[in-house]
Every structure is written in structure tokens, then in C-alpha cells.
Design a protein around this nucleic acid. Structure first.
Lengths: 229, 229
DNA sequence: ACCTGAACACCGTTCAAGT
DNA sequence: ACCTGAACACCGTTCAAGT
């Protein structure tokens, strides 16, 4: 990973800059990938072959780096057709990409969780795009933000859940300790196997469909109902 | 907070134990309350008037303490009538208590997020109770776990979202930068003010209702539809 | 049994110094 | 401008020692 692993470079300005905001962000994302994902400034610095303090030249604090990573997140999730498709169609691809991106950088999830979701310019642009999709489709204006926030809450919560081991809810005591739960778990496992999928993925799909259906319904009810005056 | 703030006690076994698992848990919850909520072993030890290493006598690691706290969480959330009411009624009180409990111990949310949601006995008992409620109401067995997990994912995600500042999605550049988002935000704020509530609470209620409605629908569809054979 | 003291590896951050 | 060295306060954890 590091360009010059052990070579102790001397003090003083290097002939050409070793770092940049982009290079640091790239290394940070690489580190938050899959394995364990201990996300520390020191680890990022190690992978870049520099001392930890060097990072402070580009990011004032660890928090600032994490914030920048979240800005990048929306770019990595990508556009998913909110502009030319109904929101309730585009939302599925977006949600899956969102969760997959979070899952791929599991170390980041915890770091993001500790930092209140702030308004980076990239995030704002993303929300604007999605909000415009809802508005264009005639969704009640005062419910657009609640709908988007509810979807995002579900996605982030699901990403957190996906970090847990798969046999998470399998009671240790077996069926004797929690018979209904054990039966439900087995039944879900069989359904997942039959669908050649996993319980985790089926659960996410199920929840997302349910939430989207509920959100559509709520918008329709309000539009033709008590909202008129 | 600490019983003897500065008094440096000598080494050696105290005449009566200063600590216990319960006392440590209580202090840990008190610390994760509201303000900033820096949750560290050192801080817990400080509030108890002992050295950090003393805690290791009762909990092998910081992770073990956090796991014990999560076990306590379900107790603090409490029962909400899943036994004698339909799940789709009881779920509202449960969800609000869940989110409020998480919100009251905001420091804990981050700690929980870093630790995969494991199967403590208390949590298992809680899931069993809720799963039994679904089963009794005739919900399709293979969808019970997906339904519960989806609800919990939404609740935890919402609790995380509630940590963010309220004007989170208000674009800094104003309406010029993100006109639709700005309008949606104002519209939601007005609706919240009219309901004498907050955008955060309205959003949570909205999302919860939508998700519950979608989950009910999905269960009904499956029962009377393609599942039969 | 139940705590302190000392010690370790680690972390984020500040500040001076070097080129 | 762009990095290292030294230094600081902090963290979790281990282990010996004290009663």
C-alpha cells in the first residue's frame, strides 16, 4: 500500500507533495473497506507512508476528514435515474447502491454514526435532485422531506444491521428458549434459500418495498383528502 | 457524581466493594445521557471515583460493557402491549419508546453502532415477545423476522438522524442553490409548527406509519395471494 | 476478593523546526 | 508550501502488588 514502506524520509518539504486531499480521501476509503475497518488517522497515515500529523495539513481534524468522506459517499452512490423516472422506481436502485456502498466501507458506518449528518454541498445537491423528483411527481410538498429522511433512516439502519453476524437472532438456547423466534428464523432462512438470496437481502428488499408503498399511499391520501381547502 | 471526588484511596481491597456490575452500568447510562455523551471507560471510572482498571474486574473489555448496556436497553424501552394488543397497534408505543430511549442516551448510539447487534438474552426475550405477537395475529411466518428487523432498522436509523442539527438540510446557499429542497424544508417546518410538533418528530411519525402500513399490506397480500399452494 | 500503581501500545492534536 | 520530530493529554488493557 505505502509507496515507501520503511524508508524514513528526512524532515523538510518534499520536492513534490506526497499528499493531497484526494489522495488522503482515497486511502481513507480503501482503509474503511471490508476487513475490520479500523478507521484511524494513524492507519490512514501509515498506508500513505507519512506521519499522522501530515494529514492535519489537509484536514484540520479527524472529524473534517470523515465529513469529507461523507461528501464523497453521495458521489460513489451515484445517480439512479431520479431525473427521468418516477421517484418510486428510481428509489430502489438508489437504496441498494446506498446500502451496498455503506456495506463496502463498513468501517465508515461507525464513523458516520458518530458524526451528525451535516450539510456538505455534495449531499445538498443530492437531496435537491431527489426532492425535485418527488415534486415533479406531484408528491405533497410538506411530505417530501419526511419521505426522503424516512428512506435514508431505513437505509442507514439497515446498513448497520447488515454488520451483525447472520445468525444474530438465532437464540442460543434453541427453540426451547424462544420457540416462535426460532421458527420464524428458520422459515425466513428457507425462504431466502428458495429465492437463492440471503435473509439480510430479503429483509432489506421487503422493508424497502413496504416503506415505499406506505410513503406512496400517504402522499396519495393527503393529496386527495384533508389537505384540500 | 463521584462519592469521594479527590480522596486518593490506598491500594488493597476495600472493606466493602465499591463497584458492582449494576453500579457500573448505572454510571455508564448516566454518562451517555444527553450532554455530548463522550462514552469512555475512563469517564465512567471517574464518575465512580475509581481507576479505569477497576472496571476490568467486572467487565473484561469495553465491548463487554457496551453489550451489557444494550441488554439493559430493551428493559428500559419496556413492554408496550404486544401481548394483548395487535402488533400494528403496540408497535407505535414501542417504536417511540425505543427512539426516545436511544435519544436520551445519545452517546450510546454511536457505541452501539460500532458493535454488531449481538444476541443478548434480554434482546432475544424481547424479540420472542414481539415475534409471538405477529404470529398470533396471523402474519406470514417467513416475513415476521424481516418485518421486525425492518422496523428496528428504521428506528435506529431515525435515532441517528435525530442527532443531527435541526437545520441540517437547509442549504447554506439558500433557495438559489437548491430551490426545491428549500421549499420542501419550509413547507415541512410550517406543517410542524401548525401541528405544534417538530420536523424531526413529524418525520418519524410519518415514516413509522408508512412502514407499518406497508408491512401490513405485504403480509396480507402474501397470505391471500401467491403463497398458497 | 477487589482495588491501586506502574507500564504498554495506541490515539488525535499542537507546535516548532527543516527545506 | 509541505512535511518530520518532539511533546501533550488521552485512551483501553495487562500485570503485579497490596489488603
Amino acid at each position: 500500500m505505502s509507496p515507501t514502506p520503511d524508508a524514513k524520509r528526512p524532515a523538510g518539504r518534499p520536492r513534490s507533495a506526497l499528499l493531497s486531499r484526494d489522495r488522503i480521501l482515497q486511502a481513507a476509503f480503501a482503509l474503511s473497506d471490508e476487513q475490520g475497518g479500523e478507521f484511524t488517522l494513524a492507519a490512514v497515515a501509515r498506508s500513505l507512508g507519512v506521519r499522522p500529523q501530515a494529514l492535519h495539513y489537509y484536514f484540520p481534524s479527524r472529524e473534517a476528514l470523515v465529513a469529507a468522506m461523507r461528501g464523497q459517499l453521495t458521489l460513489r452512490i451515484g445517480d439512479h435515474g431520479f431525473i427521468d423516472r418516477p421517484w418510486f422506481e428510481a428509489v430502489h436502485g438508489w437504496a441498494f447502491a446506498y446500502r451496498e456502498t455503506l456495506g463496502r466501507h463498513s468501517g465508515l458506518i461507525a464513523a458516520l454514526a458518530t458524526l451528525p449528518v451535516a450539510g456538505e454541498p455534495e449531499s445538498i445537491a443530492d437531496y435537491e435532485r431527489i426532492a425535485a423528483s418527488f415534486a415533479r411527481d406531484g408528491y405533497p410538498e410538506h411530505l417530501i422531506l419526511p419521505a426522503i429522511v424516512a428512506l435514508e433512516s431505513f437505509i442507514i439502519g439497515s446498513a448497520l444491521d447488515a454488520l451483525a453476524p447472520a445468525d444474530n437472532l438465532r437464540p442460543h438456547g434453541g427453540a426451547a428458549q424462544a420457540p416462535v423466534l426460532a421458527a420464524a428464523e428458520q422459515s425466513a432462512s428457507r425462504a431466502a434459500a428458495a429465492a437463492e438470496s440471503s435473509v439480510i437481502d430479503l429483509t432489506f428488499t421487503f422493508g424497502l418495498r413496504a416503506l415505499v408503498a406506505g410513503i406512496r399511499e400517504a402522499g396519495a391520501v393527503t393529496t386527495s383528502g384533508s389537505e384540500a381547502h
